[in-house]
Design a protein around this nucleic acid. Structure first.
Length: 261
DNA sequence: AGGACGCCCTGTTCGC
DNA sequence: TGCGAACAGGGCGTCC
């Protein structure tokens, strides 16, 4: 479930569990997830080191090692982290396991194997390499308005462009547009200033609210679209059946009454 | 520039 | 009920 709020949750989870303990061994189950490094080299690099802190940029999680290097995790569509002690508690689809001297293990779990694990000497290096824009929650209102100027694409696709602002994916772009009352196919450059400001406020409110809810749909406010994104879903504000369309290669769910096209 | 598509993977849901 | 098809919260490359 890895958009910005999910990855922020993983960051906090990791920070609360897996820091400052020497790594005894790294077990790579799916080598294809590693980019730019072999399982052997990763093991050599991490053995005896500790995770010292974590930082998030968009959908990327960066974990600082006590040797100056950083582990970079991207979670694809189905990635997550789990910390456990008993081997029997190892989650299914654990693709990379970090075993600590204290007997605990941090598992990088990813059934579909679309995530990626890399090592970098600096998060900025990787951010540049992937041409990521500012983290969506670090973007000022002014910069947001500037990014919109002259853009002729659809607003949903625009929100999801990681090189403009990093962290928003299919689910949260739907939620932001719903809360702002904007149709996903609206042309971004044609939105008036009031709409753009509403969109910006919705972006911040939705992402922060989702983080507070630990990115768990069950804990989101009743006014949220998120848990209703399915064929029988209805608008939480007016009960109108939700509609779907394709945008940016993904399925957008929206309320035709609150988000008129 | 922007959009559509295919591909990488595999588990789940849908529709006949 | 059973089965294959379509779909799923991402990102990248290609083509038009």
């Amino acid at each position: 479930m890895p958009e910005l709020p999910d990855v922020e949750h993983y960051k906090r989870y990791l920070t609360a569990t897996a820091l400052h303990q020497p790594i005894a061994r790294v077990q790579v189950v799916a080598p294809a997830l590693l980019t730019g490094i072999t399982p052997q080299a990763l093991g050599r690099m991490l053995k005896g080191k500790r995770f010292e802190s974590a930082r998030r940029h968009g959908k990327y999680l960066f974990i600082a090692l006590d040797n100056g290097h950083w582990l970079a995790l991207h979670f694809g569509m189905t990635g997550s982290l789990h910390y456990f002690r008993q081997p029997a508690d190892a989650p299914a689809y654990s693709q990379c396991l970090f075993h600590f001297d204290n007997g605990f293990t941090l598992a990088y779990v990813d059934p579909r194997k679309l995530g990626r694990i890399a090592l970098t000497d600096d998060p900025q290096t990787l951010i540049r390499k992937h041409q990521l824009g500012a983290d969506a929650l670090a973007l000022s209102a002014g910069k947001f308005i500037d990014l919109a100027a002259g853009q002729r694409g659809q607003v949903k696709a625009w929100l999801m462009q990681q090189n403009l602002m990093a962290g928003i994916g299919n689910i949260y772009s739907d939620e932001i547009l719903f809360q702002a009352g904007i149709h996903p196919r609206q042309i971004i450059g044609k939105l008036d200033e009031a709409s753009l400001k509403r969109l910006y406020r919705a972006l911040r409110a939705v992402l922060k609210t989702a983080i507070d809810a630990q990115a768990d749909p069950e804990q989101m406010p009743a006014s949220y679209l998120l848990p209703r994104r399915h064929a029988k879903g209805r608008c939480p504000k007016c009960g109108t059946p939700l509609e779907r369309l394709q945008a940016a290669g993904r399925t957008a769910w929206f309320c035709p009454r609150h988000q008129p096209g």
